[in-house]
């Protein structure tokens, strides 16, 4: 079946089998391999993308449901070859090690900063609770996100 949807700001049309998952189509058909498959059942958050502005697990979405929707992936965070503030903070603080969870973390952190720019450290941990990281122990990830939040407040 043919579906069309907005992908990272561009209108795209693609022929899919209805049972393909959004994650498969992003990675295999559009070659947007930033989104990762960790667990494949919604537990790890490595496949996090935005659908109509909301962070969701793309491994759980039959792609047919994306007809007419607006999808954004981690590839859209950087603009003009410049990483976003969240991505830069993750690098600066060492909030990334093996890197598998990092795209999901960067997406969820971006969503969390949009939704609650003044979140406390404890609240930020809750907002990020759908993303597993087996390397960092989370401390440096949260440090990075909190620092990005502070920088946004400083620069308005």
């Amino acid at each position: 079946m043919k579906i069309d949807f907005t992908l990272n700001g561009e209108q795209r049309e693609i022929d899919v089998t209805p049972m393909s998952r959004l994650l498969d189509v992003l990675r295999c058909d559009f070659e947007l391999t930033g989104s990762k498959e960790g667990c494949g059942e919604g537990e790890c958050g490595a496949c996090t993308v935005f659908v109509d502005g909301k962070a969701v697990n793309s491994c759980l979405i039959p792609v047919a449901q994306m007809q007419g929707r607006e999808v954004r992936t981690v590839e859209s965070l950087a603009s003009n070859e410049m990483l976003s503030d969240v991505q830069q903070a993750l690098i600066k603080f060492g909030g990334t090690q093996c890197g598998i969870c990092t795209p999901g973390i960067a997406m969820m952190a971006s969503a969390a900063l949009e939704a609650e720019p003044n979140a406390s450290r404890a609240r930020m941990r809750e907002l990020m609770a759908g993303n597993l990281c087996r390397c960092t122990g989370y401390q440096l990830i949260i440090d990075a996100v909190i620092s990005a939040a502070e920088a946004r407040r400083r620069h308005g």
Binding site: G42, G45, T48, A55, L60, M108, L127, A129, N131
Partner: peptide, 9 residues
């Protein structure tokens, strides 16, 4: 329930 992403879905 579950996680922020799953509660969105």
């Amino acid at each position: 329930i579950a996680s922020p992403q799953i509660r969105n879905m």
